[in-house]
Design a binder for these strands. Structure first.
Lengths: 352, 352
DNA sequence: CACCGGGGGTTTTACGTATAACGGTCTGTG
DNA sequence: CACAGACCGTTATACGTAAAACCCCCGGTG
């Protein structure tokens, strides 16, 4: 005997969950039959009548399969890990939303690791969760932390970055976005741009810097200054203050992110100048913040939910040994009030 | 014979995970001993030397316990469900951060359900995840969706709301926050306030409305208008436009959320007025948005991470049959540029 | 009439872990 | 010297599911 149950004198009022065996007993069949019927694998092996009896019994008992037992049996957990820097960044919250939606559609679970602790890689950054995963979706981040996951043989899908060795990557057309920003500003007449870049060691920000340089190469405009900023509004404010003191002749500020752009606008005004009349400002990501500030930000809209959704789809494909769809997602420019032609002072070539 | 493995000709290069039995073989002991040693339950039952041998073997093989098997054995999953409206709302992203941190500290997993689908309750809102949970933490939301969880006997901790019947609640001192807002505004000289409330059927917003009314009762000021707004910047803008056309004599707008407040500021300016010179505006939550807009928002700072953390702590307490700590978390007023004494036009009692 | 095939199930086993129950081998003691 | 405990383990079992292997009965066929 010696039941494995740990409870003393029936201390919990909670109703004991029915098992497939309970359903079997109630339906007058064997447990195996219940398993077959409830997973729709019974065609030609169980009569229609019996199947119906089983389904009814399951419904009446409120049966739900025990996922732990199923996972143990199958060796798969139907759970994916999503690794993103921080959900308080709206972009990643939206990535999560997209991934979660697709996961739910496929009856997949999702565990989330916001990664402050990953920046300082612990011996085992992902704790015990590692053992219960089928795959990983990660945005650009500390690669060595991912190595411990890879060592477990977990399939990995990278979002908007490519450290090499991942099963699939889902990318945003960052280069195109930056090109559109440059075209927009140059088209308005700007010739001296400054770049406020995020001081985050992340693939996407490197890509933005490279794309900005590349895009400018074909134009009459030039990059007169670059400053690194902490990825917050305040960081943008401080970096922009440095930019405008080092390069007061810049007429447009290209910011790597909307938060930085919001900070840039504040800095500009603090110096007694106006946006966009004296200095134009562009953002990136099209966060809700972009339309909360005034003037509203000209920015690049990134399909955040879609990259999350596509990442999850790609992971599911890999797990089912299908070819993942690793297309590059298009982005678009959203022109709003923070950009305008350079101010009159500049039209006459004068100094401010 | 007849292995349960589903693989044909060894189709996966993935290294097979070592089990506790592999560790046992390698260490020259039984599987039971491995289990005892690795969970630190061996004192007085296994010699120090053997324990060390086991630990070494486990480390060398890279052993990690199979969580599915453990869950099956124990009947517990060490996984909690967090139900929040949407992570794109920074407040809930922060709640999540706090809860996730505490969960990680206790080797607990966390699954997340952003709940658009909960608003329209599906037959089984939580999908198959239900079966693999030890408990639930939920913010104020559609109560009938939670009922299906409760039917499974899952412990429930409510955040900043109390539908009754939950094992614990962790609350914010909303009333105190609103009282401070009123004191602040009345202290500045405001007498006619308007309320921009969120059109979301949520405990916290009802609480804010009630608290505003209560706080005003003791003062010479009055509520001249209330408008409901969709919980977005645009929603705040529209509602505020309605407020100011219906009650042009309001000198201060109390908004239920920083996003609404940001929209309110835009609406005020669109009417050719200034914040705070002509109209003061207050927010709620102290999102990062509050310092991104200009003027920066006077708002109520809510300890978002802490309520998440305390919620998780309370759930863990309930699961361990300890008494949960269900204190009310204090909030604070952050006075910034969006509030000031009423403009000169009002000081002389004139109409604008 | 012996035999086959197949429809409609059942029996059995394995997944990896935790733990109750059991069992040897010493050492010291009455 | 027999025997009680410590001490240090081992053996056996159960958790709930999936699925391979088996089994029985019945109608048709050579």
């Amino acid at each position: 005997m010696a039941s494995g149950r740990h409870q003393g004198p029936d201390d919990d009022a909670g109703p004991v969950r029915p098992t497939s065996r309970d359903v079997a007993r109630s339906a007058g069949v064997s447990q195996a039959t219940v398993s077959l019927v409830l997973r729709d694998k019974w065609h030609g092996r169980v009569s229609t009548g019996t199947a119906e009896v089983v389904r009814t019994a399951a419904r009446e008992l409120g049966y739900r399969p025990n996922l732990a037992a199923r996972s143990l049996r199958l060796g798969r957990t139907r759970t994916a890990l999503l690794v993103v820097p921080a959900l308080t960044n709206e972009f990643f919250a939206r990535v999560h939303t997209g991934a979660a939606r697709v996961a739910a559609e496929h009856d997949f679970g999702m565990v989330l690791y916001p990664s402050p602790e990953i920046a300082a890689p612990a011996p085992d950054p992902f704790g015990s969760a590692r053992a219960a995963l089928d795959g990983v979706i990660a945005s650009s981040m500390a690669v060595e932390a991912l190595a411990t996951l890879r060592a477990d043989g977990l399939p990995l899908v990278m979002l908007d970055s490519d450290p090499g060795g991942s099963e699939a990557t889902v990318n945003l057309d960052i280069a195109d976005g930056m090109r559109r920003v440059v075209e927009h500003l140059v088209g308005l007449g700007h010739r001296r741009l400054a770049h406020v870049t995020a001081a985050v060691d992340s693939w996407t920000f490197h890509a933005r810097a490279r794309a900005l340089a590349d895009a400018l190469a074909d134009t009459p405009a030039a990059l007169v200054r670059t400053e690194r900023a902490e990825l917050t509004v305040t960081g943008g404010l401080e970096a922009t203050t440095r930019v405008l003191s080092a390069a007061p002749d810049a007429t447009a500020l290209v910011c790597d992110d909307d938060m930085l752009a919001a900070g840039a606008c504040k800095a500009v005004r603090r110096l007694g100048l106006r946006v966009p009349d004296d200095v134009s400002v562009t953002g990136f990501d099209d966060l809700s913040l972009a339309t909360a500030v005034e003037p509203e930000l000209t920015t690049v809209r990134l399909p955040a939910e879609e990259i999350g959704a596509n990442g999850m789809r790609a992971l599911l494909a890999v797990l089912e040994e299908r070819a993942p769809d690793t297309g590059v997602l298009p982005v678009s420019l959203v022109a709003r009030g923070s950009t305008a032609p350079p101010g009159p002072a500049w039209r006459h070539g004068g100094a401010r």
